[in-house]
Amino acid sequence: MTITVTATRISPAPDMLGESPIWDDRLGRLYWVDGVSRRIRYLDYASDRVTEIELPSMIGSIALCRDPGRLIAGLADGIYLVSLADGGLEPVHVPDPGNDRVRFNDGKVDRQGRFVCGTMGVYAEPEGRLVRVSADGGTECLATGIRISNAICFSPSGDTFYFADSLDRAIRAYHYAPGPEPLTEPRIHVDTRPWHSGPDGATVDAEGCLWVALVQAGKIGRFTPDGTLDRLVEAPVDMPSCVTFGGPDLSVLYMTSIKDSGSGRAISRHPYGGYLFGLEGLGVTGLPEPLYG
Rank of each mutant, 00 (worst) to 15 (best):
R265M: 13
A76G: 02
E90T: 15
L291A: 10
L84M: 13
R132M: 12
R187W: 08
G227Y: 08
G137W: 13
F277V: 07
S11N: 07
R193T: 14
V212C: 14
Y174I: 01
R103E: 00
V36K: 13
P186D: 09
M1A: 13
R269W: 01
D238V: 04
A63R: 13
W211H: 08
A164I: 07
M255Y: 01
A73D: 08
E125F: 00
P68T: 12
A213D: 02
A202W: 05
A170W: 02
C65Y: 05
R41A: 12
A266R: 14
E52H: 14
M239C: 05
R114S: 04
A206D: 02
E289A: 15
L17F: 10
P178M: 06
I72F: 08
R269P: 00
M1G: 08
A217M: 03
G145N: 03
S47C: 00
D15E: 10
I148A: 00
E289T: 08
M16A: 15
V33W: 03
R66K: 15
A124H: 05
V92K: 15
I146T: 00
F277E: 00
R26M: 09
P91K: 11
S61I: 14
E207C: 11
P248F: 02
A217S: 15
A206I: 01
G121S: 01
A13N: 04
G60K: 12
A151D: 04
P178C: 03
P194G: 06
P271Q: 12
R49H: 09
S166F: 06
F245G: 08
S263A: 14
V237S: 05
Y123T: 02
G98R: 15
G264S: 12
G118I: 04
V133N: 01
D226W: 02
T6N: 13
R169N: 03
L55K: 11
G138F: 07
V204A: 04
S149C: 02
L250W: 10
E289H: 10
S83D: 14
G221W: 10
R9C: 06
G286K: 11
H270A: 06
R66W: 05
Y275T: 09
P21A: 09
D249K: 09
D15G: 08
R26K: 14
D260H: 10
W211C: 13
N150Y: 01
G145M: 00
C153R: 05
L253E: 12
D230H: 14
K219H: 12
G227S: 14
T244G: 03
I258V: 15
P56E: 09
P178E: 06
D44L: 04
L250D: 06
D34K: 11
G69I: 09
G179Y: 05
I53R: 08
L142H: 08
I72Y: 12
S155V: 03
P271D: 06
L214H: 09
P12K: 11
S149Y: 00
V36A: 11
V204I: 14
P288N: 04
A151F: 01
G293V: 14
Y123G: 02
G273D: 13
R132N: 02
E125D: 03
G138V: 12
G278D: 03
E181T: 02
G179N: 11
T256V: 05
P21C: 11
P225F: 10
D260F: 06
G98W: 00
L84A: 09
D15S: 15
A235I: 04
M1H: 07
M1Y: 01
R38V: 07
C153K: 07
A73N: 11
